[in-house]
Simulated scan of single mutants.
Amino acid sequence: MAAAFLWGALGASALLVGALIAYQLAPSRRAIAIVMAVGTGLLIGSVSFELIDEALETRTVAPVALFLLVGAGAFALGDWLLTRRGGGERKDAGGAQAAGSPLAIVLGSVLDGIPESFVLGLTVLQGGVSVSLLAGVLLSNLPEGMSSSSGLRSAGWTERNVLLMWSAVIVVAALSAAAGYVLLDPAGGRTGALVQAFAAGALLAMLADTLLPEAYKVEGVLTGPLVVTGFAVSIALSAL
């Protein structure tokens, strides 16, 4: 479990790196969008190869599909509630967060990090962290940290407050990875496979609701090829 905690913290640490880049280097929105789209493709590949495929080894298609939808619905509900409370623009790099609630922005960032951290903990349980999943988590968290922090800087947040926010998110992500290690055990039979499907659905919903829209705002039709590029890289890394 300690190893899962540390891997979860490592994956989420890209948020802190992204914040430092945003405040020190002021990256362009296009650079952020490119990394965001590629990271999305990597995570989609990881969900396919690390979660859904293995869940189907012990359960039939119907329950796996059902829990995939339940996971997506759970994330969508949480995202909807936080959007209503002022956290809907937490990933915007242009400063749209200025009109939002600081608490909702923090809670929204925590919500975004939980599914991928859960999944990361599962791969540690299976004998070693997944290279493709870790790369996907890093490449999704890096632009998230850059984009959100750029917007928060434009909205008047100090660098200290932003770094404290991401540090709190890293702790939650590490705890989520440890929880994934404990709860998402495929050897547990039916429960393990169904929780795998639930986590996969939540992660896919997070990508569709938060990362892809922000990438598409900047890259437009090039977002698709960039996502597929990330997916192709995930295939290659899964073969290692």
Score class of each variant (00 low, 15 high):
Ala2Gly: 10
Trp7Cys: 01
Gly8Ala: 01
Ala9Trp: 04
Ala12Leu: 02
Ser13Phe: 04
Ser13Val: 01
Leu15Gln: 11
Val17Leu: 11
Ala19Lys: 01
Ala22Gly: 12
Arg30Lys: 15
Ala31Arg: 06
Val35Phe: 08
Thr40Tyr: 09
Leu43Thr: 13
Ile44His: 08
Gly45Met: 05
Val47Pro: 03
Ser48Asp: 11
Phe49Ala: 12
Leu51Asn: 13
Asp53Leu: 14
Asp53Trp: 10
Leu56Gly: 08
Leu56Gln: 02
Glu57Phe: 04
Thr58Trp: 02
Arg59Thr: 09
Thr60Cys: 13
Thr60His: 15
Thr60Ile: 09
Val61Asp: 04
Pro63Ala: 05
Val64Met: 09
Gly71Ala: 04
Ala76Pro: 01
Trp80Pro: 01
Gly86Met: 11
Gly88Asn: 08
Glu89Cys: 01
Arg90Ser: 09
Asp92Phe: 11
Ala93Asn: 10
Gln97Glu: 09
Ala98Leu: 05
Ala99Thr: 11
Ala99Ile: 07
Ala99Lys: 13
Ala104Asn: 02
Ile105Lys: 11
Ile105Cys: 10
Leu111Ile: 13
Leu111Asp: 03
Asp112Leu: 07
Asp112Phe: 04
Ile114Ser: 10
Ser117Asp: 07
Ser117Val: 02
Leu120Cys: 09
Thr123Met: 07
Gln126Leu: 15
Gly128Ile: 14
Val129Gly: 15
Val129Gln: 05
Gly136Lys: 08
Leu138Ile: 13
Leu138Glu: 01
Glu144Asn: 06
Ser149Met: 01
Ser154Met: 09
Glu159Tyr: 01
Asn161Arg: 15
Leu163Gly: 00
Leu163Ser: 07
Ser167His: 03
Ala168Cys: 02
Val171Asn: 10
Ala177Val: 05
Ala178Cys: 05
Ala179Pro: 02
Tyr181Cys: 00
Leu183Val: 05
Leu184Lys: 14
Pro186Lys: 10
Gly192Met: 03
Ala193Leu: 01
Leu194Val: 07
Val195Glu: 00
Ala197Thr: 05
Phe198Arg: 00
Phe198Val: 04
Ala199Ser: 13
Ala200Asp: 00
Met206Asp: 04
Ala215His: 03
Ala215Glu: 03
Tyr216Glu: 12
Val218Gln: 10
Val221Gln: 14
Thr223Pro: 00
Gly224Ile: 14
Pro225Cys: 12
Val227Cys: 04
Ala232Trp: 00
Ser234Ala: 15
Ala236Cys: 04
Ala236Trp: 11
Ser238Cys: 07
